[in-house]
Amino acid sequence: MTALTLEPGRLRWLGWAAALRAWLFLGFLALFFEAWARIAYGTSFFGNGFNLQSIAVFAVAPLLLALGQTFVIISGGIDLSVGFTMGLAAVIVAHIANIAGDAFGPVTGFVLAVLITLPASAVPGLINGWLVARLGIPPFIGTLGMYGVARGAAYLVAGGTSVPVSNPLLAGLGSGSLLGVPLVVLVAIVVVIAMHYLLSQTRFGQYTYAIGGNREASQRAGIRVGRMTLMLYVLSALSAGVGGILYTARFTAGAAQAGEPLLLDSIAAVVIGGASLFGGSGTIIGTVIGALIIAVIQYGLVFVDVEPFWQFIAVGVVIIISVIVDQSQKRLGSWVVRHG
């Protein structure tokens, strides 16, 4: 027998670089705003509990959209409809909490509202998944169509205006806190832990990566790629649905446009967190860092008194730079494979 010895890869550091990049960026931003606060106002930015809490609350909605989006992007797809799926959920939960609250009391009203809103928010995801997995429509187009459909549905359900919440439990979820941590942040942390487990420790997560890495090989290995794709879009919609419920709780009103500016933020969080838009890579921890980066940029710019519209420009620039860095790392990687 002839022994075949295979060399170890020399590109291990490239994998670390993607994750490291997000941490470094967050660290850089932290130092930047800390320095600004000390020089301009003579106070600490991060030493201030109110600032930290505000950043965490700020990050919740984009993070929830980004968590489901992480799975979809890793599998090689994209979900452009999450913003209005969130708006739809925000409006539905407000309506049902009010109606069921009047009929059965606040506790039952709150429980019913959550139990009905979650499956309802899964519907756009089911349709997205069906379009992409069964009809073979490119995710960009299928979910863009659903963006319009969910938007219209959300405004119709809302009756063209925002829906104020009269249910005290739902409002309490938005304003309450436990040991100084806002409840909405606690809910987000629980969802993060569940999503991290699902992505990194289960077959579902493993197949998400496999489909993004090589769809054909996944199919040949017996993975039911179509069913997985359907479930991925449902997961994304559910994640956005939780985001909608927390939005309504926080602002004590459901609004169809709740998630409108958050689509960009959610994709930015996933990409800044080290996921590739070509699929196959990404982590929940990375996405959490990405969402924190965006929240720090947005809150930090308000803190240093820059006109709020600069936030959109800053996030847009950061998303483009992240993709450029990701692509040049890939090019460097394949160059090393060919010439190294």
């Binding site: 077959r203 493993q206 496999a210 890495g213 090589n214 090989a217 040949r220 290995a221 993975i223 196959g280």
Partner: peptide, 27 residues
């Protein structure tokens, strides 16, 4: 067509037939 490039050797050999264990006795 054989391998998912982004997964490691073990994950590729066991793709679609992953081995499971329990952490903390239940998970």
């Amino acid at each position: 067509l054989a391998l998912a490039d982004n997964l490691d050797v073990g994950a590729n050999v066991f793709l679609g037939r992953e081995l499971m264990c329990r952490r903390f006795g239940f998970l």
